[in-house]
Amino acid sequence: MNIRYWLHLYFVLIRSSIRSGMQYKMNFLLGMLLAAGIQIAEFLMIAIVLNKFGAVKGWSLYEVGYLFAVMTLSKALYRSFANDVHHLENYLTSGDLDQLLTRPVPVLLALMSQNFRMMPGELLQGGFILTWALHGMMQAGQITWIAVPFTFLVIFTGAVILFAIGLTTATAGFWLTRINELQTLTEDASQTAVRYPLVLYPVWLRSILLVVIPVGFVNYVPSLFILRGELGAWVLLGIVLVAAVCLFASMKLWTFGMSRYQSTGS
C-alpha cells in the first residue's frame, strides 16, 4: 500500500462524496450560486473602502486585492480537500468518529474525503480578483510574469499552512470536545485579519499572526517579496520550509491526539 494507492482511494471517496451531495439538486445549485454571491459581497466591502480612500498605509488597491485573492484561493483549496477536518466537532459530540475508526483507512483520510465541497464560487471570485490584481500591477510595471508561478506556489503552500492550523485546532478537540469557539479565533478571525496588510495592526497582534497562528505566511510575507521585492528570493524557500514544518508538527500532534480519543455521545 503505497502513496499511489492512498491517493487513488482518496479520489474514489471524493467522487462518491460529490455524487451524494448532488442528490439534493436544488440545494446543490442554490448553494453554489449563493457561495459566489457571498464572496462577491465580501470583496465589495474591501473594494469600496479602498476605492473611496485609496491606499492603506502604502498598500494599493491591487496589492490588497492580491492579499485577499491569495487567501481566498488557499482557503478554498484547504476547505475543498479537507472540509470535515474543520467540522471535527460534529463527529466528536455525536460519537460519529467511532464509525470512521472502524474503516480500513486512516481516520484523517476518511475525514478528509467526507462531504467534499467543490468551491466554484470561491475559485471564480479568487481567480478573477487575482488576475485583475496581477494584470494591474504588471501594467504599472510593478511586477513581471515571474510573479505568476510564484503566486501559484504561494497559494499551494498557503493551503498547506491553513490545513496545518485547521488540523491543530481540530486536534485540540480530543481534549476539549467543543472547538467552535477556538476555531473562530484560530481560523475565522486570523484569516480575516490577513486579508489586509499586517502593517495595519499593532506589533503584539502582528506577532501573534506570524508566530502563534502563522497565518501571515499564507499571503502577507510572500507578497512582500513577490509584489514589492523586499526581503529576497530566499523568502519563498523559507515559506516552503514553514509550510513543511507546520504540516509535520500538526500531523504529529494529530496522531498523538488520536491516541487520547475517548468516545462521547450516544
Binding site: 479565533l185 485579519a193 502593517v199
Partner: peptide
C-alpha cells in the same frame, strides 16, 4: 471565550479604519 473572538473581529476592523 467566544466574546473574545468576537471582540477581536471588531478590533481588526477598528485597526483598518485607524490605518485609513
Amino acid at each position: 471565550l467566544h466574546n473574545v473572538a468576537s471582540a477581536l473581529f471588531g478590533y481588526l476592523y477598528a485597526c483598518i479604519w485607524i490605518g485609513i
